[in-house]
Each structure stands twice: as structure tokens, then as C-alpha cells.
Amino acid sequence: MIYNFSTSDRMSVMQTEVTQKFLPVLRITLGWMFFSAFVRRTINVPDKLNPHSTAYVGGKLITFLPHAWSPIVPTLEYTLLHPTLLYYFLLLFTALEAMFGLFMILGFMTRLSGFVITVLSWSIGAAGGWLGPTCVDEWQIAAVEGAAALMFMFTGSYYLSIDQLIAKKYPNGLKIGKLHIPLW
């Protein structure tokens, strides 16, 4: 690959290199916020995924209902009325949090992980963000973690990341046909 950088481009690259050194602190913290949800539901309090327990996180979705963003409400109601669907939805959501939380911590496919975590964050915001004022979790997940994840979608990661190793061999991302998909 031949790069044709101007002087200003070279300066930008240098600045980017410096900035990248300070990103892992946010990336690892952000990843942990999602991966820890998996840890809580499977190791700390397994009853959180037990539909017969009062600790079941499915019940949390009921509390989202009253002021959820209106396009979300019918889907929420349908899921709550179908316990099997609700259970598998929670398993899927927890698996996504585990997988992409861990990927973010490791700096593996950071851009893809950033995209997935952005979608997870903003969907929580649209469904349960109204609970923010007393229990700031939902609102801050949507606002801060959504923005941080979107940032990583654009920055990717170099330092302290698996992507750094992959990028040495495949600098243009995943190649499918003529397309280069920048997953890292």
C-alpha cells in the first residue's frame, strides 16, 4: 500500500498516535461496564437469569414500560407477554454484552464492538432512559457509554489491543471480495 501524506496529514497522524496512547483507559472501562453485566448474571447472582426468581432481570423490563419511547412500547409489551421469547431475548442481550464487552476490553474488532455497544446503549436509552433521574444507570448508559462506544467505532484502537497485531498483517480490515470492512 502506498501512502501519499501531505505535511499536515503527517502531523495529524502524529497527533493521532499520541491520542491513541490515552484511549485504553476508556476502552477497558467501557468494555467492563458491559462484560460485568454478564459476570453479575452468571457468576455473582445466577438467579438474575432464573425466570422463577424475584431477582430475574426480565422483571426489570416491566419498569421500562410506562414512559418508554413510544415506538419501542409494542415490542416491549409483546416480549413481556411471551416468557420464552423474553428469556431468549435476555440470553441474547447478555451474550452480546459479554462478547462485545470482552472484545472492547481486549481491543479486538474495536470498531465493530463500538458499533454493537452503541446500539445496545441507545436501545436501553430509548426503552428505559426515563428512569434516569433517580437511578442514573439507564440514562448514563445511553448518553455516556453510547457516545464513548461510537467514538471507538471511529478511532479503533492501537495501543494495548489485539487489533494492533491484526492490523500489522491486515491493515485495511476484513476483505470480502473487493470490499474492505474496517472491523479494527
Binding site: P66, G125, W130, L131, G132, C135, W139, A143, G146
Partner: peptide, 20 residues
């Protein structure tokens, strides 16, 4: 998204509504 959800969830740009 941040400002939009802030307004949708809490009507916060005018008078903050705390439904919880």
C-alpha cells in the same frame, strides 16, 4: 441522541420532569 433522549425522557430543556 444524548440531547434528544434528554428531552424525550425528561423534557429537560424546559422544565425537568422526574417521573421516577
Amino acid at each position: 441522541v444524548t440531547f434528544g433522549l434528554y428531552q424525550i425522557n425528561f423534557q429537560g430543556f424546559g422544565h425537568l420532569t422526574n417521573y421516577s
